[in-house]
């Protein structure tokens, strides 16, 4: 059985102009110890998908339809008490900005110990011992003295290490990391990502890595899911999707990478903007920006179709695929 199985997930936001669908019909699976990347541009619904895994959406957001089976339990149907037992314990989350994630008026030690005590019966000194151990695992120097420090006394990179340590405190099965390095400088980014990869592999922890950086996805994940306007447009093995992208949007994302651009030439980008979720175009949501759009694309919404090891939601790819089959 898969560790995590998401089936036809729909997340909506109620609003004055009617509900908008921020995540539309998303399905995927994650095996124990597997690492999945979720990529897409800003507003694609990546973070919302991540929070929906924990059933932790703030109003007006809500899960409208679908299942999130974690170890066989449907997170959508669990009550708050049952969810609390899973959150932070078997499924942990790493937030984007370490500068605002930790509570500024509580010490590092207090926040680590309270996390442990929320899930296990421990004495204060036992909890502190585990906390120190985990801080050591994320290479924080003098961990004993860190417990008494407040977040503002640590640098951004250090704080993100602490947050990773907190994520690992209870030996979870799954970590959801929402852009864990976006707020950090480049060298720190590389350190943190390497640490995350190392710890996930060493402890056989599953990882959902949310990012808009394809380079990071390449480095850390085995499978990738590309999202656009709340939908999955392409998913498959990371190496194959990056080397041989099928969906025009994925192709655009990859050719927009700075490494793909010759020195002296301007950076490429995908023309146009992602449509507002309030006024999604009919048919394929990407067609207004797509160079291959055909009349069919403006009428009918493509569904995910298996193509070799990947699944792609594109009429054009389907057509090419069928032609090769006929030959």
């Amino acid at each position: 059985m898969a560790l995590l199985s998401v089936q036809n997930l729909n997340v909506k936001f109620g609003g004055p102009f009617g509900a908008i669908t921020a995540v539309n019909n998303v399905s995927f699976e994650l095996q124990k110890g597997e690492r999945l990347g979720i990529v897409g541009e800003s507003g694609a619904g990546k973070s919302i998908t991540g929070f929906a895994m924990m059933n932790l959406l703030n109003a007006p957001g809500f899960i409208d339809r679908g299942k999130v089976l974690f170890d066989g339990q449907d997170m959508v149907r669990l009550n708050e008490r049952q969810l609390r037992k899973i959150r932070g314990n078997r499924m942990a989350m790493i937030f984007q900005d370490p500068l605002v994630t930790l509570n500024p008026v509580l010490t590092i030690g207090q926040q680590m110990v309270e996390t442990l005590m929320a899930h296990r019966r421990l004495r204060q000194d036992e909890a502190e011992f585990i906390a120190i151990q985990k801080l050591r695992e994320v290479y924080i120097s003098a961990p004993e003295s860190r417990l008494g420090q407040y977040p503002h006394e640590l640098s951004g990179g250090m704080r993100q290490r602490v947050i990773i340590a907190i994520a690992l405190l209870l030996d979870p099965d799954l970590i959801i990391a929402d852009e864990p390095t976006t707020a950090l400088d480049v060298t720190t980014q590389a350190d943190i990502l390497e640490l995350l990869l190392h710890l996930c592999m060493a402890n056989n922890v599953g990882l959902i890595l949310i990012t808009h950086d394809l380079g990071v996805v390449c480095q850390l994940t085995e499978r990738v899911m590309v999202m656009y306007a709340g939908e999955v447009v392409e998913t498959g093995k990371t190496r194959e999707v990056i080397n041989d992208p099928q969906h025009p949007y994925t192709q655009g994302l990859i050719s927009a990478l700075p490494q793909q651009t010759l020195p002296g030439t301007p950076l490429k980008s995908i023309a146009g903007y992602m449509p507002s979720l309030l006024s999604l175009p009919e048919g394929c949501p990407f067609h207004p920006r797509c160079a291959y759009a055909s009349p069919e694309c403006t009428r009918e919404r493509p569904s995910l179709v298996q193509y070799r090891d990947a699944s792609v939601a594109c009429h054009e790819v389907n057509r090419l695929h069928q032609e090769t089959l006929v030959e």
């Binding site: 037992k85 899973i86 959150r87 932070g88 942990a92 989350m93 937030f95 509570n103 929320a118």
Partner: peptide, 17 residues
Amino acid sequence: KSEYVKYARARGLSPWR
């Protein structure tokens, strides 16, 4: 509405705390 309250919930802390 702050991030650290959301983070506290994501760690499974009790509402009381």
